[in-house]
Design a protein around this nucleic acid. Structure first.
Lengths: 230, 230
DNA sequence: TCAAAAGTGTTCTGCATACACCCATGT
DNA sequence: ACATGGGTGTATGCAGAACACTTTTGA
């Protein structure tokens, strides 16, 4: 390499993940408590430095696997942050990703930093390490945009779910209230839900029907998108 | 810095800009012809390595200033690319930005790489250096999305313009045809256009009225956005 | 029988769409 | 007078928004 280029090859790069989960009532994210400086004791987004021979996507998958024990999670790149002083140890640029996890699939993984991970209600997040609040805001906004145009919300639900749960998910993500009749009309029109024939068990009210995704329709919509302007 | 971290601080980072312009008929981008390896002789997006003490936005502004002689251009971050082998000289990650320029403001700047710059019709772009075709595609898609929800298209027009020019701009960006009556109805309803009182000169047909932006309304819309689902 | 959530239809309004003719100017 | 692009209004259909009561179960 030519000499005048050397000084540019002195930066580090990381990825940070906003891992969203839905517990049936609230939208949550996974945070980890840092056990070392800088920001010792602060809560932070899971993330890691990108190795010199590692792709961005590999890096995200690695972090998610270590954190949740799960592979092939849905994720989307959101924004890259590069303020000169964003990391106290040196020049580290970072790219924020959001990820969707079925909270029921998630199990704490005893290895690595996952031991310190916790689900926190999105609305209860306080001051985070580094510029992670900024990354979080950016990811929330992107999720809100994407959920209206692509059927990604369903990555957050268990295989069988009620329409009320689905509506609650949209309400939690978009932070608005939806009309029950209009919501059902619109969702059912889209035609990617199938009745399972089952209903809720042991609820002290009229049990709701359980639905699942019609794989075919669902994959079709995944590729061409939809409009859910609520 | 701790030793085990050293190996991560060996990457370089760049920004690449898709500079859009509109000549009244077609959507164009500024490309530069490379005069050195790698990809000597190839056309490429304007861009540069980010200095160790330089913010991303500063870096974009610097490149745009060198390229066009203009400051304070509108730009938006789009996507970051980090494939391990994307740059032959070493590990260089890059973030793609798109930028909007009033083509009439643009003057070739004799300094720096601008001498080799040329406006190319978006549809005529062939094989570019590095992964720049990918970056371009990503920026075009983003521009198409953004132009429907924010009044950014107007960054591409001169201060006074006709409704037909405005429609042509939307058609060029979105690559579709629009109905003239419906377009005018919708645009005028939005209420951020003001008649200048002037009309076209020296045209061999009925001269069109010239419009300008109503700054107040325009800035209002900039912050809250709009819906232009065409 | 009561509490609690599930489930269901209609009306109204506004916006997108489709569509054809006359107008003002320069040559 | 003709060629060229500028400029205008209406009717239709569809989708979003608002809105209240009955049903089913467990306690």
């Amino acid at each position: 390499m030519q000499d005048h280029l050397q000084k540019y090859f002195t930066l580090a790069f990381s990825i940070d993940c906003v891992v969203f989960g839905f517990d049936g009532a609230d939208l949550k994210i996974l945070l980890i408590e840092r056990g070392e400086d800088p920001f010792d004791g602060f809560w932070a987004l899971p993330g890691d430095l990108v190795a010199p021979d590692e792709d961005l996507n590999s890096s995200v998958n690695r972090v998610l696997k270590e954190l949740t024990g799960l592979s092939d999670l849905f994720f989307e790149q959101v924004e890259t942050f590069g303020a000169v002083d964003r990391h106290p140890l040196g020049r580290v640029l970072t790219t924020g990703y959001y990820t969707l996890v079925k909270i029921s699939d998630y199990e704490l993984n005893p290895s690595s930093f996952a031991a310190e991970a916790r689900w926190i209600n999105v609305n209860d997040v306080k001051e985070l390490a580094f510029d992670h609040n900024q990354i979080l805001d950016s990811c929330i906004q992107r999720l809100q945009k994407s959920v209206r145009t692509r059927p990604i919300g369903f990555e957050l639900l268990p295989p069988h779910f009620t329409l009320t749960e689905l509506q609650g998910l949209y309400e939690a993500i978009l932070n608005i209230e939806l009309d029950i009749r209009n919501f059902r009309k619109k969702i059912l029109q889209m035609n990617f839900l199938k009745e399972t024939g089952q209903v809720q068990q042991n609820v002290s009210h009229r049990p709701a029907k359980l639905y699942q995704f019609d794989e075919e329709q669902y994959n079709l919509l995944k590729s061409k998108g939809f409009n859910f302007e609520v």
